[in-house]
């Protein structure tokens, strides 16, 4: 019985090793190489001491934080509305409408946004960049929040209202504490993904579009410096892993999506 399990899982394990871990190991290997093939930590030193990359990292961090925050601000009321206001009959329909744009490829969605801003005379820049990011990542915040919100029963909310809570107090004392797992899961995903996002800044960012993802792209494909490009990628990946690890530790046993 146990043996068949191992055999059945083998193709998936091999697939993961070959197509997921191997490129990453290759990336790490390259990041410790100089352009004449000697092992070195020069690439890391260069990236970490170059004010240019530090400035870009901080800028990308800012974009990721703003995107995450805006996603939270929109997705919280939306998930509350979906679970506790919309009647059972229409919930599926409203959810389907909210999800429908995400059936379309994200590149086409980005073009659609471009076509939407242009006739309105909105110049591409920081605003359109954030708009595009929030538009693209909103769903990754909504779905975990929605899942958490369904766990907050109507009577709990009613009990709090009768005790005298309403509006923001109700949100702060009851709804947010009870949906923390969804909030943290959504924030982690949106933050990690928007930190290295490359397409949206490139397409909608205008002159404000030079972000970390863009910089990595340039290192690889413009400057052909795959060693420094790898080093920068490894640093970002390590940071992302750290965020994910922190999340898993934080929400273990609380019904989070990774728990």
């Amino acid at each position: 019985m146990k043996k068949t399990g191992v055999i059945l899982a083998l193709p998936a394990v091999i697939f993961l090793i070959v197509f997921f871990f191997a490129p990453f190991v290759f990336l790490i290997y390259k990041s410790f190489q100089s352009n004449i093939g000697i092992l070195t930590i020069q690439n890391y030193l260069k990236v970490l001491t170059d004010t240019f990359y530090i400035r870009i990292s901080l800028y990308s961090l800012e974009i990721a934080l703003i995107t995450t925050l805006l996603c939270i601000l929109i997705a919280y009321p939306a998930s509350y509305y979906l679970v506790h206001v919309v009647s059972d009959k229409y919930r599926g329909l409203v959810l389907a409408i909210l999800i429908s744009p995400f059936w379309i490829d994200f590149l086409i969605r980005a073009y659609a946004l471009k076509a939407f801003f242009f006739p309105l005379g909105i110049k591409e820049g920081f605003f359109t960049l954030i708009y595009g990011m929030v538009y693209d990542y909103f769903l990754f915040m909504l779905l975990p929040l929605y899942a958490s919100m369904t766990g907050v029963s109507k009577t709990i909310i009613n009990a709090a209202r009768i005790q005298g809570a309403s509006g923001l107090t109700l949100a702060r004392k009851i709804i947010i504490p009870l949906t923390i797992p969804g909030l943290v899961a959504g924030s982690t995903i949106v933050f990690m993904m928007s930190l290295t996002e490359f397409v949206i800044p490139a397409m909608l960012g205008g002159t404000s579009g030079y972000t970390l993802g863009y910089a990595i792209y340039d290192l690889f494909f413009i400057y052909r410096d795959i060693y420094r490009g790898s080093a920068l990628s490894v640093i970002i990946s390590a940071l992302s892993l750290l965020v994910a690890y922190y999340y898993i530790k934080k929400t273990r046993g609380q019904g989070g999506i990774f728990a």
Partner: peptide
């Protein structure tokens, strides 16, 4: 004051 059919104590 109200006590609900399913109590509704705040679990957190």
């Amino acid at each position: 004051g109200m006590v609900f059919q399913d109590l509704a104590l705040f679990p957190h």
